[in-house]
């Protein structure tokens, strides 16, 4: 598992840097520490598996607070958003992302709804075409089909149209 190994080493490196940073008083007003907003911008897009369906930026648990600290740490190392997300996916699985990754079977997530909607549209379209009759057969049906309870409405409309 070369990838996981690399990640493990990477984390160790980060950890060492964190400890040295924390030990030095310079950390408090370090050159350019990431702001909470920068951390939240990434955390917003992640979900922690401990408290399901709560975005990481608003999750109050300690586990999530630790994750945010990790994001902060990685940001301070100049890591980009994509890199950080990938790290979380490797460590905790694809479910930390707010959408299924676009790969393999997960494409189904994105393809099925549009296909189903198109199929529905096709059915409706066909029904409409089948129901559409030449306009000649219309006048009789119009007056009959209207339910008697709504005569008033229909007539009112009719009347309004006339007056316009």
């Amino acid at each position: 598992m070369p990838r996981t190994l690399r990640n493990t080493k990477y984390v160790i490196l980060l950890f060492l840097i964190l400890t040295t940073l924390l030990a030095s008083p310079a950390f408090a007003q370090g050159s350019n520490p990431p702001t909470d907003d920068e951390v939240n911008a990434i955390a917003k897009q992640l979900y922690c598996p401990v408290c399901e369906n709560t975005p990481l930026d608003v999750c109050p648990t300690q586990a999530c607070a630790q994750w945010r600290d990790l994001i902060r740490l990685m940001l301070s190392q100049g890591k980009g958003e994509a890199e950080i997300k990938q790290y979380f996916v490797d460590n905790y699985g694809a479910r930390v992302l707010n959408e299924p990754p676009r790969s393999g079977l997960n494409w189904l997530a994105y393809l099925v709804p549009p296909l189903a909607i198109l199929a529905g549209a096709f059915i409706v379209f066909r029904a409409l075409r089948a129901w559409k009759k030449p306009a000649t057969a219309s006048p009789a049906l119009q007056s009959e089909a209207d339910a008697p309870a709504d005569d008033y409405v229909a007539r009112l409309e009719e009347e309004v149209r006339k007056r316009n």
Partner: peptide
């Protein structure tokens, strides 16, 4: 559920979707 069943991988379908 489908993803978990067929790939063993849990995924989240969240707001952007």
């Amino acid at each position: 559920l489908i993803s978990e069943l067929f790939t063993g991988q849990k995924v989240t379908v969240g707001p952007p979707f």
